[in-house]
């Protein structure tokens, strides 16, 4: 079976800064994968490269076997990304935003699925509300909804619970777990290590543009008996 995501020796510089220093990893289909690391480790650069927002200097990235540069149309169709920044288009309401996003992915009549997403993210009552009038947590939910409108088999969540309340976190993880159970591959970056520990089957730890540990969550934890993922994280980063 082709890997959901295949990353081979990806290098990316920003001027003299080496943001990615030869990253390689493979994520199997249907997995729940955690990409962890301190700020500046290269997680968002790697995700942006996967999404085609950045062009790596060398190496290759594939989504479900499709190269993100040479076969970008198919690769982007198969990927849904929840960005880290809380961004929105202030001209539209929630439903318009989701309809427009569906259209960008070539889907014209998508209201049934949009209604389902709205319901699962507890946004139904906000469907006709302008994006400007939503709270930060609500805007975050809409970002998640936008990433899901085209039912991508691979979903990247870049710190999706940063600055959101407990209720939303629980609702969001319930929904994401359901998607994962239905076969969607989930890639998660987060600074909440207890969330990663609870959700992710495999984890990569990144530091200074490199993957310094890559294993199943169970194996990583077994190497540090009695500890939490946070302990594993701290010890690995300090090695």
């Amino acid at each position: 079976m082709v890997a959901a995501v295949s990353i081979i020796d990806v290098v990316k510089h920003f001027g003299s800064l080496k943001a990615l220093a030869g990253v390689s990893l493979e994520i199997e289909q249907g997995g729940f994968f955690g990409l962890l690391g301190p700020n500046g480790a290269g997680k968002t650069t790697l995700i942006s490269s996967l999404a085609g927002l950045l062009r790596p200097d060398s190496g290759s990235l594939k989504v479900m076997g499709h190269d993100v540069v040479k076969d970008f149309r198919e690769a982007r169709r198969l990927l849904g990304v929840v960005p880290q920044e809380l961004v929105f288009d202030p001209f539209f309401n929630v439903r318009e935003t989701l309809r427009i996003q569906s259209g960008y992915f070539g889907i014209r009549k998508n209201d049934d699925w949009i209604d389902e997403i709205l319901e699962n993210l507890d946004l139904t009552s906000k469907a006709e509300v302008n994006m400007r009038r939503l709270s930060g947590g609500m805007k975050r939910r809409v970002l998640v909804a936008q990433a899901l409108v085209h039912k991508p088999p691979v979903i990247v969540l870049d710190e999706p619970t940063a600055g959101v309340d407990v209720e939303l976190r629980q609702g969001l993880w319930q929904f994401v777990r359901r998607l994962n159970g239905e076969g969607h591959t989930i890639i998660l970056t987060t600074h909440y290590l207890e969330e990663a520990e609870a959700l992710c089957g495999r984890i990569a730890l990144m530091k200074q543009g490199r993957v310094i540990a890559l294993d199943t969550t169970a194996n990583l934890m077994a190497a540090h008996p009695g500890g939490t993922l946070e302990d594993v994280f701290v010890r690995t980063m300090n090695q």
Binding site: L53, R73, R76, R77, P83, F88, D89, Q101, G106
Partner: peptide, 17 residues
């Protein structure tokens, strides 16, 4: 506006030629 607010990402992520 889209660049400064970051909402440009919504048209860069999809497969629009």
């Amino acid at each position: 506006q889209a660049k400064i607010t970051g909402s440009i990402i919504f048209v860069l992520l999809p497969p629009i030629p």
